[in-house]
């Protein structure tokens, strides 16, 4: 499977220009014979939206922008980020990731963990998603995550327990911490890679992480998108801080090989985890 990573810098609050940016990269990915192109978190709108979040929210089943993207998805699969307005629950807007394929919306994941501390204020402007659910793409069972979701390891675990062989995280992660003179990137970049390595190895899954670059309101997005193999080996890492497009061949047969070598998936007992969690939650929330 050929996966294209579009490590781009979307325009903040201008979906028209971002749609054009997407279509340009999609064309590039198609010409490179990619099967899937992955864009970063909130790639259609930019990240630091504040009150714009509510104004730019769309119902993907009615949005003219999505109509064009769905058209494009007839030749290549797409993962992108946008603000979703719940069709069945008006007024609630989500930081969402969509998987489009063969002219259809295969899946929408609403970001569950909204960072709301320090420099982040997502909880002020977005409603939180409530589930992690892997889905089939025709090639491989896939799980979607949005940025901070990935740093809570239970999120990837749900996809693993649900049988995902491909876990895709779209991200708008700022680079922070420059006081390690010998590290090539920000301290926070190391944090994402650490999780990528661990999740790919212990889930025997391909882990794709697409982060954005560029600056918004003083924050710098770190880039450094990566793909790890089901054996926990780094397949590619894009440069930090630079706009970059890369198409990478990923061997999906490695998922099966890894699961034969390390039977974490075969021996997994989600029901034990579930029962344990249930007990913990009940005890913690008893009044």
């Amino acid at each position: 499977m050929k996966i294209a990573l579009a490590q781009i810098s979307p325009v903040l609050g201008n979906p028209e220009r971002n749609l054009k940016l997407h279509l340009d990269y999609i064309k590039k990915a198609v010409s490179r014979k990619a099967d899937l192109v992955v864009f970063p978190e909130l790639s259609l709108t930019g990240y630091t939206l504040k009150d714009l979040a509510a104004e730019l929210a769309v119902n993907p089943r009615k949005s003219p922008t999505f109509k064009k993207l769905l058209e494009a998805s007839r030749t290549i699969d797409l993962v992108l980020g946008f603000v979703e307005e719940a069709a069945d629950d008006p007024g609630l807007v989500y930081n969402a990731a969509a998987y489009l394929s063969r002219g259809r919306i295969l899946h929408i994941h609403r970001k569950v963990f909204l960072p709301t501390s320090g420099m982040f204020e997502e909880g002020r402007f977005f409603a939180a998603g409530r589930q992690f659910r892997p889905f089939d793409t025709g090639r491989v069972r896939t799980g979607l995550l949005v940025c901070r979701d990935f740093l809570h390891y239970g999120s990837s675990y749900c996809h693993f327990a649900g049988g995902a062989g491909l876990i895709i995280t779209i991200s708008a992660a700022p680079g922070r911490g420059v006081d390690e003179p010998r590290s090539p990137g920000f301290q926070t970049s190391r944090m994402w890679e650490l999780m990528g390595e661990a999740v790919s190895f212990f889930s025997s899954a391909v882990v794709v992480y697409c982060n954005r670059v560029g600056y918004e309101d003083g924050a710098v997005f770190a880039g450094g998108s990566f793909i790890y193999s089901p054996f926990g080996k780094l397949i590619t890492r894009l440069p930090y801080l630079e706009e970059k497009f890369e198409v990478i061949e990923v061997d999906l047969a490695e998922i099966g090989r890894a699961r034969k070598s390390w039977p974490f998936r075969r021996d997994e007992r989600p029901e034990v985890i579930w029962q344990s969690l249930e007990k913990i939650i009940r005890e913690n929330h008893e009044d």
Binding site: G175, V178, D179, G185, G214, Y215, V220
Partner: peptide, 20 residues
Amino acid sequence: MKINLPLVVKTLTGFIREET
């Protein structure tokens, strides 16, 4: 308090370029 100087230069020059 030591800083990664090449990374800082890259970040700040990019900041000046983009924000300008």
